[in-house]
Design a protein around this nucleic acid. Structure first.
Length: 508
RNA sequence: GUCAGUGUAGCUCAGCUGGUUAGAGCACAGCAUUCAUAACGCUGAGGUCGAGAGUUCAAGUCUCUCCACUGACACCA
């Protein structure tokens, strides 16, 4: 039975930014981890292509909305390709199957009695494109951002009766693992406890969207469209679009990995919608933090926007993945600092891990015929093996909880232990006495074996580095299966070792 | 405005129920050193723990006030 994991479906109003790249990288790391453990997963990403903003952006560019969507969606596809993201699906909400699914979903929810016609009233700012909360006594309110006058709008909309699910949602959001991280869970619990209001699911002034069946002039508004992409993405192309088929193809999602800004919609609206449609709920919703650049919010006006594509061209995916996943606690906000980024990549990947492999292969080749040592010698306790076993257990645990930073730390600890082990054993001194050769063989083997474990454990985070390391150990074939190889002793004595080259070069 | 969270070495962060000289990693300095990507290892310098007051034999750790930042407070894709 397969399970799905998802990134947000990114809004194609503009080209991809670092934030969406961050979500995608994290989800990719998790997907890679699950696959290594042998799980049958479907990694879903995609784009949300409807709405007024897109309609307007396209008009501004003098092209049709669909042209605009094609352009931007293509950019996303290309970018994920460049980053070597391993998504299995890429859903576009303008696709025909998605449209069918949305219609079916709506009819089901309507049949359940959870749809009603109502009026959306309020003070609307054209600039912000949203309704503003204003002081009731204010007869002519202004937008606090744009400072212009707000328009009074009274628009007929369809509503989803979220309030029907107050009890169920309350229970759900309080449950132990549904919302993560914990701090955000509290916000949501708080919010729900104040009482849920029905929300509108259609617009009458937006043409660029999916028409609501039976309601002339209405198109679906974001949440009743975009969120359903998680479902429509799962149906195989040849399969008839049917909600009942979903459980065969990976629904419910194991986790939705999203930015903290859209947590509420995923943790409250979405489950209620699914309940109404009689579908299973996702197991978990993880709202990660936002990135700043050198301590400041990224913004056009500040001109400090980090372009993920340029970043990739300069540094390559491993360096950036490592920095984002190993230095920023997943779930908290993070700051991209160029100096720190370079320092950490060089210190952790090139020095601690890369150089460890390099020095050990060099020794092994020099003293053991360009091969992994062959020996019969054994010591009673093998401290490195114990360290490796601890790391294996810890790292699996951390990955399971999406605690990438902690996982990376544990891997780094193992590599450091191996470096210390070498300095402690001093094989380069021992080897001067011929009688020590067995001992040296044993020590070198232990360190090489630790490198092998490191390379496997680190794979979800920095896949290229991992593969490079395994190649140098002549163990490329072990890359895809943790169940088989992620335990001590799978490095073969006497296997050939080629001349080591740095597995990752230093940056800047 | 209301509620919640954060504020600890240059940087990123640990410090549970209060208890000897406040910790780690990175960066920096010195030493050592070749097996290695000037890498690894060792040593060191660096903090009035946001500010002030209080409780206590004892507070980074509890209470109060203040300051700064962040988030939530419903339609922000």
């Amino acid at each position: 039975m397969s399970i799905s994991i998802t990134t947000p479906l990114y809004y194609v109003n503009d080209k991809p930014h670092l934030g969406s790249t961050y979500s995608t990288i994290a989800t990719d790391a998790y997907a890679r981890y699950l696959r290594l453990k042998g799980k049958d997963i479907i990694f879903v990403t995609g784009v949300d292509e409807h709405g007024q903003k897109i309609q307007r952006t396209a008009a501004l560019k003098g092209i049709s909305p669909s042209e605009h969507c094609n352009d931007v969606s293509k950019k996303y596809l290309e970018l994920w390709d460049k980053w070597k993201i391993t998504n299995d699906r890429f859903i576009r909400t303008t696709s025909e199957s998605h449209k069918k699914l949305v219609e079916e979903f709506f009819l089901r929810v309507k049949a359940k009695g959870d749809i009603k016609l109502g009026n959306q009233q309020g003070w609307y700012c054209v600039g912000c494109e949203e309704y503003k909360d204003v002081d009731d006594t204010d007869e002519e309110p202004n937008c606090p951002i744009h400072l212009n006058k707000l328009e009074w709008r009274d628009e007929e909309n369809l509503f989803f009766c979220l309030s029907n699910y107050q009890k169920e949602i309350e229970t759900l959001v309080r449950s132990k693992y549904f919302i993560q991280p914990e701090s955000r869970k509290n916000e949501i619990v708080n919010f729900v406890s104040k009482g849920l209001k029905d929300f509108s699911i259609s617009r009458v002034d937006v043409t660029w969207g999916i028409s609501v069946p039976g309601y002339q002039g209405h198109t679906f508004y974001v949440w009743f469209d975009a969120l359903l992409g998680y479902l429509s993405s799962l149906l195989p192309k040849e399969e008839e679009v049917k909600l009942d088929n979903l459980s065969k193809y990976g629904w419910p999602a194991n986790v939705h990995i999203i930015g903290k800004d859209i947590l509420r919609f995923h943790a409250i609206y979405w489950p209620a919608m699914l309940m109404s449609a009689n579908l299973e709920l996702p197991n978990k919703v993880f709202g990660h933090g936002f990135l700043t650049s050198e301590g400041q919010k990224m913004g056009k006006s500040l001109g400090n926007i980090i372009d993920p594509e340029k970043l990739l061209e300069i540094y390559g995916e491993d360096a950036i993945r490592w920095y984002l996943l190993s230095d920023i606690k997943f779930g908290q906000d993070g700051d991209f600092q160029n100096q720190r980024f370079c320092d950490l990549v060089n210190s952790n990947l090139a020095n601690t891990i890369g150089n460890l492999l390099n020095r050990t292969i060099a020794m092994s080749r020099k003293w053991f015929n360009c091969c992994v040592p062959i020996f019969t010698y054994k010591e009673e306790s093998n401290s490195l093996m114990s360290k490796a076993n601890v790391s294996i257990e810890e790292v699996i645990n951390y990955y399971d909880q999406l605690s990438f930073k902690e996982a990376c730390q544990s891997i780094l600890n193992l590599a450091s232990s191996a470096n210390l082990y070498l300095n402690d054993k001093e094989p380069w001194k021992l080897i001067k006495e011929d009688s020590n050769k067995e001992k040296v063989a044993y020590y070198i083997y232990n360190v090489l074996e630790s490198c092998r474990i490191v390379s496997l454990l680190i794979n979800p985070v920095v896949p290229n580095l991992s593969l490079n390391m395994l190649k140098q150990l002549n163990l490329e074939s072990q890359i895809n299966d943790w169940n088989k190889y992620l335990n001590w002793g799978h490095l073969n004595q006497g296997a050939e070792l080629t001349e080591p080259k740095p597995v990752i070069s230093k940056i800047e």
